[in-house]
């Protein structure tokens, strides 16, 4: 029998965004340089924009997602994993929008971290004018529940 209360029931919470995200040539160039490469000359953006665009243009901030999970962002959420499936390459100058949702929030006990909630959410990046997603990403965050530590 678990000795701690269940995680908040947040599965299904919408993360649809209203903001438009555009990868500018200047920012793409700066980002590429910051990671040690030159920007592509064919108009494609660095693929790490899968993470940036979806995080920045989703319907909640990181702090807001944490708040939905009844977790204080100042308590230090940790990235667990990130996966992406690209249908198309990301393009500089293209306007994008985000849809998505929280998939699950599961409370666990870890030898290293104590009680923690494992948050999984899915985001999709679409052309702003509409149409199928150009990518889908699943991110997993670990939310340490210090207040539930033994």
């Amino acid at each position: 029998m678990e000795e701690f209360p269940p995680a908040p029931d947040v599965a299904g919470t919408s993360l649809d965004g209203t903001a438009i995200f555009t990868i500018t040539a200047d920012e793409n160039a700066a980002l590429c340089k910051s990671t040690g490469v030159e920007p592509a000359s064919d108009g494609t953006a660095h693929p790490i924009y899968y993470y940036i665009a979806t995080q920045v243009a989703m319907g909640k901030t990181v702090a807001g997602v944490c708040e939905t999970c009844e977790f204080d962002v100042d308590d230090g959420p940790m990235m667990g994993s990130s996966g992406v499936r690209f249908a198309e390459q990301l393009m500089v100058g293209q306007d994008y929008k985000v849809t998505g949702e929280i998939l699950s929030l599961v409370r666990k006990k870890s030898r290293k971290l104590g009680v923690m909630d494992v948050l999984t959410y899915r985001l999709r990046l679409h052309p702003a004018e509409g149409g199928d997603a150009v990518l889908e990403t699943d991110n997993v965050w670990v939310l340490p529940r210090k207040e539930l530590a033994a």
């Binding site: 980002l31 910051s34 990671t35 040690g36 490469v37 660095h46 693929p47 790490i48 993470y51 940036i52 940790m78 990235m79 667990g80 994993s81 990130s82 996966g83 992406v84 499936r85 690209f86 390459q89």
Partner: peptide
């Protein structure tokens, strides 16, 4: 930031396979 570390691995892939595209990628921190 964690995503920068993912970008380093993407750079490795793009350097190894110039002109190609990443279709899927998963990474654990």
């Amino acid at each position: 930031q964690g995503p920068i570390n993912v970008a380093y691995m993407m750079n490795m892939l793009m350097t190894a396979f110039p002109g190609c595209r990443i279709e899927t990628m998963d990474s654990r921190f």
